[in-house]
Design a protein around this nucleic acid. Structure first.
Lengths: 149, 149
DNA sequence: TGGAGATATATGCGAGTGCATCTAGTTGTC
DNA sequence: GACAACTAGATGCACTCGCATATATCTCCA
């Protein structure tokens, strides 16, 4: 009979879930990151940001918006945008409604890079995740994992 | 009807699972790491290795064994052991059956630190995971995530 | 209106990471 | 038994991260 030892102390099932979560994420992440690197493409994080910016369109996004959507720490956003801008994939444009801020806008080169990355990224996700679970399992996973966020 | 576009290309459910996996892991990891830091304790990775070594007993483990159990890259193990040794929590002892290698053995101070970390670590797992899912859900999660490793 | 406090972003710093490479020792093969 | 191929572990390097802090701007209220 599973019985917590004290308030908030996790059951064995919860600890197991935490361990499995780490291992699974790490394993998948490693494979996917490697697939991109092997294809001479930028890392996963670049894709995610380019994707957000592509969806955002002309207006782009404020750095703090990217931060919230992607759960990246503020200082890391700042530098990730630096790198993306240096690579020519995004542009920082001044922001008239708030002089402290800026808008980050994707460039055509950025859009193209995102498109170029997708097949590789997708195949890697397929290999690392899709091949190992059935579709309904994947759905269940997404639902359960969603509760942790 | 969900139908893969091409061999190995992931369905939407799979992509969602991958995204949720990242977010969940990152969120939980961040909280747990912070809880340890706030309690002036070493990071999560130290706990994991100390735990393996504690279970391994007198004989300790070879670095490459730790590597396999914890999915840490070889070079990182090497340096993590450096740090643990410098902190006095483990000791490198020469390995007679293979002169290239060594055995990493936990010290009493290491055992004690592991014990000291556990309550904080456990509570953090409880907060980050246990509070958000029911026990059977955690079990299901562990099972599904296990398939990805 | 004049600050006080909040918010947006940048940056210095110390630490950890992955990759490539190096050294030393081991195993298998002829 | 000698040499090629392999394995264990260490290390230099470039890069990224998280944290703390700095700076500029904004908001709101006395």
């Amino acid at each position: 009979m599973p019985k917590p030892t004290a308030p908030n102390l996790p059951s064995d099932a919860v600890v197991d879930a935490w361990i499995a979560l780490n291992r699974a994420q790490q394993t998948a992440q490693l494979k996917i990151e490697r697939a991109l690197r092997d294809a001479q493409l930028p890392p996963c994080a670049w894709y995610d940001v380019l994707w957000e910016l592509d969806r955002a369109g002309e207006a782009g996004l404020r750095p703090f918006e990217i931060e919230r959507r992607r759960l990246i720490a503020q200082s890391n956003i700042s530098r990730l945008v630096d790198r993306l801008a240096e690579a020519g994939y995004v542009e920082r444009v001044p922001c008239q409604e708030d002089a402290r801020g800026q808008r980050v806008v994707i460039t055509p080169a950025g859009r193209e890079m995102r498109k170029r990355m997708w097949p590789v990224y997708a195949r890697a996700i397929g290999d690392a995740v899709g091949r190992r679970v059935l579709d309904p399992e994947a759905q269940m996973l997404a639902t359960l994992l969603g509760k942790l966020t």
